[in-house]
């Protein structure tokens, strides 16, 4: 098995004034080229865990490692370049006063990738096309796009610096149902084509089953179950995982057996 590219050891995070830790001794390992889903309900600590992996919040105790190195020994720019993120709500994650091309070019500019404007513009056009938008869309502003298209813009921004790891925090739960599957399909295609390592946080087991080989079920800041997605879904070992599965609203089963 390949060495982990991103991992957390005994991560614990206390927020001031709380009686319980948001993370309580969590171990997580992400191997290159794999996809990991982190599942749980509100308050499970899944977003806190993602923020640790993203390096925007520090654990109270425990350690994050990137390519075997503790995070504080990794060059900041290198880490940012390799680890990118897509947030839940593109209405909030895109600056309303910036044209799309500037939004997508932001990591290039800030990380000083691409020597000049022309190279950067070329890269922006490339990633916009990759997510199913047109290069001309770069001149428009976020509010001119639908929710699904805005999430495509956010994905384009994350892809722009050609990261190895893509983190996604509930990337479809702010979108309309009919658009969700399109974005899931897009994410899966991109992960396959670009050989990305994916860490996906979601409350929805169905979405995780679509995108992730491995799943980590969290509750109250702890990991209650961890394993290959198919195993966890077909044969959940933990009682909470079973409850979670049973609670998913489903269409009548007989309907699904039809071709």
């Amino acid at each position: 098995m390949r060495d982990p590219i991103l991992s957390g050891y005994q991560l614990t995070r206390w927020f001031p004034g709380r009686t319980h830790p948001a993370l309580d001794g969590v171990d997580v390992t992400v191997r290159p080229g794999t996809s990991l889903g982190i599942v749980g309900e509100s308050g499970a600590g899944k977003s806190t865990l993602l923020r640790q992996l993203l390096g925007v919040d520090r654990p109270t105790s425990g350690e994050i490692r990137f390519a075997g190195q503790p995070l504080n020994r990794v060059r900041h720019r290198e880490f940012r370049r390799q680890v990118q993120v897509v947030f839940q709500d593109p209405r909030s994650s895109l600056n309303p006063r910036m044209p799309v091309a500037s939004i997508v070019a932001e990591p290039l500019r800030s990380l000083r990738i691409g020597t000049d404007r022309a190279t950067r513009a070329e890269r922006v056009a490339e990633v916009l096309t990759a997510v199913g938008l047109r290069p001309e869309d770069g001149r428009r502003y976020p509010h001119e796009f639908s929710g699904g298209q805005r999430q495509r813009i956010a994905i384009a921004r994350a892809l722009a610096p050609a990261p190895r790891i893509l983190l996604a925090d509930e990337p479809v739960s702010a979108l309309d149902v009919s658009v969700r599957l399109q974005i899931i399909d897009l994410l899966r295609d991109l992960v396959d084509q670009l050989g990305l390592t994916l860490v996906l946080v979601s409350h929805d087991l169905a979405i995780v089953s679509q995108l992730c080989q491995e799943v980590l079920v969290m509750r109250h800041g702890r990991v209650v179950e961890h394993g290959p997605t198919t195993d966890v879904l077909t044969n959940p070992a933990d009682e909470y995982t079973r409850a979670l599965l049973a609670a998913i609203p489903q269409l009548p089963l007989d309907l699904l057996e039809e071709p």
Binding site: L54, Q84, S93, E106
Partner: peptide, 26 residues
């Protein structure tokens, strides 16, 4: 508190640039 500021941080944008590009225009 907006996600685009957090997104800017994850893009490696420094604090002064965040003020100039994201905070002041808004």
């Amino acid at each position: 508190t907006e996600d685009y500021v957090l997104a800017a941080r994850t893009c490696g944008t420094g604090p002064l640039m965040i003020l100039a590009r994201h905070v002041l225009p808004n």
